[in-house]
Simulated scan of single mutants.
Amino acid sequence: MFVAYRITLQLLNFETMDLSKIKMVVTDMDGTLLNSDHQVSAKFFSLFESLKKKDIKFVAASGRQYHSIVDKLAAIKNDIIVIAENGGVAKQYGKELLVTPLPNATKNEVIAILNGVENVHPVLCGKDNAYITNKSTMFEQKLKEYYTNYKVLDNLNDFDGEIVKIAIYHFKNSEKYIYPKVFHLENELQVKISGANWVDISSKNANKGYALEKVMQENNILPHELLVFGDYNNDLEMLALADYSFAMKNAHPKVLKLANYHTESNDNFGVERILEQLINSK
């Protein structure tokens, strides 16, 4: 059951906020729209129907695989825009808007680096499938939360199909154990700490902000008509596009610093609170 709430406006920096011009809502998934149990609230789906009636477009933007995102939002999947794989893939109502692949030579370079790092689990992320090795049953179980479609290979170096991202998992901490090994690639690639356990590597143009710019152009959306929610570093570029950028209370310090506004945590209906204000402003 959705809990009744009151918001202290001054605390959350809303004094001058006017949401009446918003035409598009964009939200990250994990740590933002999804609670800590990786679930979408029933309240959100109810609010979505009100957004739809007011002709406000909704975009789910995630490091997750496209299929995983639409599985979480199955009830509304035909009415939403999806930015998946941290901007490597974008689809509007099922129509492909953008695919930004990672060159095969780059894939091999990254895999070679990771072969020298202990306790990391790389995932090759294609447009429709993900690919892993069979070295960890525990990791494969963890993967299923984020990747609905995946295949197990003997060797990732032998895969020569198109990928849009390499996602790398560490059970303890991605910022401490993965990022120091790959940050030197940032001059040529996107290297993003995308969660407490994940680092994502993709093409320089494959980020949520770049993909969102394409979506905005497709739908004639201006910055003052855009409302964006995020919690981690892979959200920074898309938050920077919106006049109404919201950091979750549980966000990474860089996100809290960049965002123009703050809201409650993903476990305290941070997104839903603002959507309700948006709907009431219309």
Rank of each mutant, 00 (worst) to 15 (best):
I22T: 01
A90W: 02
F2S: 14
F269S: 06
I221R: 04
I22W: 07
G63W: 01
S68T: 09
F269V: 05
A211R: 02
V152P: 10
M216H: 04
I193M: 07
G94L: 09
V164D: 00
L102S: 08
P253N: 06
Y261Q: 01
V164A: 06
L143M: 13
E264V: 09
V40F: 08
L51F: 03
F45N: 07
N134M: 07
E218L: 14
I76H: 12
K21P: 00
D79G: 06
I163C: 07
S41I: 08
H121W: 13
H67G: 10
V255A: 12
A61V: 04
M238T: 02
L12G: 00
S136H: 06
D158A: 14
S36D: 11
N260H: 13
V59Y: 03
E145R: 14
N207R: 07
E213N: 12
A75C: 13
Y179H: 11
V117K: 02
T100D: 03
K53V: 06
I7W: 05
H262N: 11
H224L: 04
T263L: 04
L227T: 02
G161Y: 11
E218I: 05
N233T: 09
L275D: 04
N205I: 05
P253L: 06
L98P: 04
H224M: 11
V228C: 15
H170F: 02
G116D: 13
S136D: 14
A84E: 05
I69T: 07
K135Y: 09
Q92A: 15
L189I: 04
N280C: 04
R6H: 15
R64A: 02
